[in-house]
């Protein structure tokens, strides 16, 4: 690990300004991504500005919304009774990811900003355009079993791994930030993560020194009937091969509204808008769900070893919606 200077953030504004002023500085919160990648030599910040003690650790609720501090621990959010009741997909997504120890350490913002698990990104000796722009993509000609089938570019096929982000993608979430120059932004979750395109090293629209401070979940009637279904190689504690966050509003057997996002198969949280629209007015039953799943994967492109993910993702969407449709209440 390269030597670095550790700075304890004293306020949101100071922490953002401190990172803004130092080109190779990074924020540190739970550390479960940053420390791991520093040990591997993938990240080499010269300064870490610790934000985990800043007053960003509260969950505030009222009838209109939830306001979730960036440094809320994932365990704290996963176990919150009212979050579980009003946005069940959030708790289910969190419980399906990480181990209890990691959920105790890692933060909500860190979860949404976590880095890909692509083995070539994590290996400093491999070509990776995300880690070293212009160096190439070893995954394209290598072991691409875990790679993305949606949203890829010639430069990058790395999967975006966050379960929580997949859930937030169907909830009209808003991200609030503080910039290093003192400004603040309110960013819709849709569009927060970038497609890799020609610049896979830029994963979000955040600027250097811009600190995520809060997430907002607006109250959403259909979110009360939402669900997360995930398939992974192990029974527990693994990243998704394919996962779906879904929500349904059904009246007398007919779908009034639906939300679908995919995880584990795309380069960013992947909202399936065309599939959602196709369900409106249809009977809430597996045939319609399967047709929607076909639409969701219509543009999928497989590499040498990850073609199975396309059919798997169709099943995951169909199963998630079916489980939700037959769930009482």
């Amino acid at each position: 690990m390269r030597p670095f200077t550790y700075v304890e953030g004293v306020s949101v504004a100071d922490a953002a300004a401190a990172v803004h002023a130092t080109p190779a500085a990074m924020f540190l919160a739970g550390g479960t991504t940053v420390v791991d990648l520093m040990k591997l030599g993938v990240l080499a910040p010269d300064t870490l500005v610790d934000v985990h003690r800043l007053p960003l650790g509260d969950i505030e609720l009222d009838d209109r919304r939830a306001r979730i501090g960036a440094c809320v621990r994932n365990a704290q959010l996963a176990e919150h009774p009212e979050i579980r009741a009003r946005w069940p997909v959030v708790g289910e997504a969190l419980q399906s990811g990480m181990s209890p120890q990691l959920r105790n350490m890692s933060t909500v913002a860190g979860n949404v900003l976590q880095r890909t698990r692509c083995p070539y990104y994590r290996d400093p000796h491999s070509a990776c355009n995300k880690r070293v722009p212009g160096s190439g993509c070893a995954a394209r000609t290598g072991w691409d079993r875990d790679a993305a089938v949606l949203g890829t570019s010639p430069r990058c096929i790395a999967v975006f791994p966050s379960d929580l982000a997949t859930a937030l993608a169907i909830l009209d979430a808003i991200i609030y930030t503080r910039r290093g120059d003192g400004g603040a932004r309110r960013l819709p979750f849709d569009g927060f993560h970038r497609l890799p395109g020609d610049t896979p090293e830029r994963e979000t629209i955040l600027d250097h020194g811009e600190l995520v401070t809060h997430f907002e979940l607006p109250d959403l009637a259909l979110a009360r009937r939402s669900h997360y279904f995930k398939v992974r190689d192990r029974a527990s504690y693994d990243f998704a091969l394919a996962a779906a966050a879904v929500a349904l509003d059904v009246e007398r057997g007919l779908v009034r509204d639906a939300r679908i996002a995919l995880g584990g198969v795309a380069t960013r949280p992947w909202r399936c808008s065309a599939a959602e629209q196709s369900l409106r007015g249809k009977r809430a039953e597996p045939a319609a769900f399967r047709a929607a799943a076909d639409l969701a994967l219509a543009d999928a492109v497989a590499g040498a070893h990850n073609g199975f993910k396309i059919e798997l993702a169709r099943h995951v969407i169909t199963r998630a919606l079916t489980e939700l449709a037959i769930r009482p209440g």
Partner: peptide, 9 residues
């Protein structure tokens, strides 16, 4: 709380 001491600075 249980945590992983290898990832905690």
């Amino acid at each position: 709380r249980r945590v992983l001491s290898c990832l905690a600075l």
